[in-house]
Amino acid sequence: MSNLKEIIIEIKDLRKVYKIGTEKVVALNKIDLNIHKGEICCVLGTSGSGKSTLLNMMAGLEKPSRGTIQIKGEAIEKMNEKKLAKFRQKNIGFIFQSYNLMTALTALENVAMPLIFRGTPRNIREKVALKHLEMVGLKDRYKHRPTQMSGGQQQRVGIARAFVGSPEIIFADEPTGNLDTKTSIEIMHIMWKMAREKDQTIVIVTHDPEVALYADKVIHIRDGDIQSIENREEDDVMEKYIKPYEATYVKI
């Protein structure tokens, strides 16, 4: 089924080699990967497997040693800093492991941040930001600062910030890495739901197999190579994977 959808990220023959002193470390060996529009993708691997490197290159934060990454038909690796910044502003949302909220700003201001950079007028961006805070269930906390919130709440603000500009692609780097299992479930559930509603593409990088339960496509990566790609029917994900998994925890 996913073959019918257009390819939004196309990775061909991707290789990344780090030079540490005189030694060469191969982070990614040879990656070929297609991600379709609206897919919820999970790159699963242990630390040092090269999964974060893959994400960074997809987001244009690192240049590959070889190969191409095309997002919406545009070659990311050929763009300069200025173009990349524009491209990210328009098409990409980002969720971090350690939330990375501005501590001086309120939840609402944090969420509105990407819209500030786009030059959206204040009244419009605050309305949109408040709507997204409502989606993550933090509407009544819009005036709180990050320091007054729990990790789970902060990550929810982070999610609202990533979604606020309605980007086509959202990258999430270990979004549940700093959270307990119960909170992780909340976070994943929200992300899954929001992406599904607007048919947005998410690429999640994680080492946690339980996070992978939320994905339509799970890419197992090990020592810089893709070991296997597990495709699931989108309609099955909720019934077959998420519901049984969440049921075991809801009781607690």
Binding site: A85, R88, M113, R118, A162
Partner: peptide
């Protein structure tokens, strides 16, 4: 440093 990086990733232009 971190804040600037985050700003860049979430959509700040270089000129901003």
């Amino acid at each position: 440093t971190k804040e600037i990086g985050v700003m860049k990733v979430i959509g700040a232009q270089l000129k901003d």
